[in-house]
Simulated assay, not measured.
Amino acid sequence: MNKPIFWFDFGGVLTPPIKAIIYQYQQKTQLPANIMLQAVKDTAAEFGYTGLEPLEIGLISEQEWGRRVKNKLTQLQPNIDTSKADLEHFGRQWFENIQPNTLMIDKVRQLKKAGFTIGLLTNNVREWEAYWRPMINLDDVLDIIVDSCKVGCRKPDQTIFQIAEQQANTTAQHCILIDDTEENCVAAQKRGWQTIHFIDNDQVLKEISYLTANESLE
């Protein structure tokens, strides 16, 4: 039987926790996190989406999104100081000085060396690719990258799991998703995937070891 494909999420798995990156962004820009998150939410709502969805499915450009978010910030707090925030180039500032999760990066390389196929299944933004790919430095390891902004749908939409299977020329039962968002794990399970809900490195490393030792998966 063929070995399973390990699909890694990017943000929160191959990077520090998203909450930690939000805190760092607040320190860089002096924008209160709660106000920034509300502005992002209000911007998405204009398109009938939530969070970063308009960016993550490639609906709007980063520059347009940044302008809209800045307008929302000033509506929410008219005297807010946005001078330290480069919202039209949000990704550049967001990823500045962010270090990858080296333990998980090392695990990706170990799995590849052991003969497993490695995929990246990420909700991401077109303009951010110039920052996140060099950060994790896995271009020589990743067999498949399925990026929401390039396929026009995002986790937890069932369609993106189907696209991943098609691109890997495999079936659901051979796919294992490692993701820090429980909703994405639940959606993948409904598709027939196995999942590891990322809580911390130790937990995930133990679960990966269990799966790779299970002869029924090899």
Results as ranks from 00 to 15, higher is better:
residue 1 M to H: 07
residue 3 K to E: 12
residue 3 K to M: 15
residue 5 I to D: 01
residue 7 W to P: 00
residue 7 W to L: 12
residue 7 W to D: 02
residue 11 G to I: 02
residue 13 V to T: 07
residue 15 T to P: 05
residue 18 I to Y: 04
residue 18 I to T: 01
residue 20 A to R: 01
residue 22 I to K: 05
residue 22 I to S: 03
residue 25 Y to E: 01
residue 27 Q to L: 08
residue 29 T to K: 00
residue 30 Q to C: 01
residue 32 P to G: 12
residue 33 A to C: 05
residue 36 M to G: 02
residue 37 L to F: 01
residue 40 V to P: 00
residue 40 V to Q: 01
residue 45 A to D: 15
residue 47 F to H: 15
residue 48 G to P: 14
residue 48 G to T: 11
residue 50 T to R: 10
residue 51 G to I: 04
residue 51 G to W: 03
residue 52 L to W: 15
residue 52 L to Y: 15
residue 53 E to R: 13
residue 56 E to G: 04
residue 58 G to T: 14
residue 58 G to C: 14
residue 59 L to F: 06
residue 61 S to C: 11
residue 62 E to G: 03
residue 64 E to K: 11
residue 67 R to F: 09
residue 68 R to T: 11
residue 71 N to A: 11
residue 73 L to F: 00
residue 74 T to H: 08
residue 75 Q to P: 09
residue 75 Q to W: 07
residue 76 L to V: 05
residue 76 L to I: 10
residue 77 Q to T: 06
residue 78 P to E: 09
residue 79 N to E: 10
residue 81 D to Y: 05
residue 83 S to V: 00
residue 83 S to M: 01
residue 83 S to T: 03
residue 85 A to Y: 00
residue 85 A to C: 08
residue 85 A to Q: 02
residue 87 L to C: 01
residue 89 H to E: 13
residue 90 F to H: 09
residue 91 G to M: 07
residue 91 G to D: 06
residue 93 Q to S: 04
residue 95 F to M: 12
residue 97 N to E: 15
residue 100 P to A: 13
residue 101 N to W: 03
residue 101 N to L: 12
residue 102 T to W: 01
residue 104 M to H: 05
residue 106 D to A: 14
residue 108 V to K: 10
residue 109 R to V: 11
residue 112 K to C: 01
residue 114 A to R: 14
residue 116 F to Q: 10
residue 118 I to F: 06
residue 119 G to E: 14
residue 124 N to R: 07
residue 125 V to R: 11
residue 125 V to N: 08
residue 132 W to S: 06
residue 133 R to D: 04
residue 134 P to S: 12
residue 134 P to A: 11
residue 135 M to E: 02
residue 135 M to T: 06
residue 136 I to W: 00
residue 137 N to C: 09
residue 137 N to S: 12
residue 138 L to E: 09
residue 138 L to P: 03
residue 143 D to T: 10
residue 143 D to M: 10
residue 143 D to I: 05
residue 145 I to A: 09
residue 148 S to Q: 07
residue 149 C to E: 07
residue 151 V to T: 14
residue 152 G to Q: 15
residue 154 R to P: 00
residue 156 P to S: 09
residue 159 T to E: 14
residue 159 T to M: 11
residue 161 F to Q: 07
residue 163 I to P: 01
residue 166 Q to R: 10
residue 166 Q to I: 15
residue 167 Q to W: 03
residue 168 A to Y: 03
residue 169 N to P: 13
residue 170 T to C: 13
residue 172 A to D: 07
residue 175 C to H: 05
residue 177 L to G: 07
residue 177 L to P: 03
residue 181 T to K: 14
residue 183 E to N: 12
residue 185 C to A: 08
residue 186 V to D: 06
residue 187 A to Q: 13
residue 189 Q to P: 06
residue 190 K to G: 15
residue 191 R to P: 10
residue 191 R to Y: 04
residue 192 G to V: 13
residue 193 W to S: 06
residue 194 Q to W: 06
residue 195 T to M: 11
residue 195 T to F: 09
residue 197 H to K: 15
residue 198 F to A: 05
residue 198 F to D: 05
residue 200 D to S: 04
residue 202 D to G: 03
residue 203 Q to Y: 02
residue 205 L to S: 06
residue 206 K to T: 12
residue 209 S to P: 02
residue 210 Y to E: 11
residue 212 T to N: 06
residue 215 E to T: 14
residue 217 L to D: 07
residue 217 L to P: 00
residue 218 E to A: 10
residue 218 E to F: 12
residue 218 E to C: 04
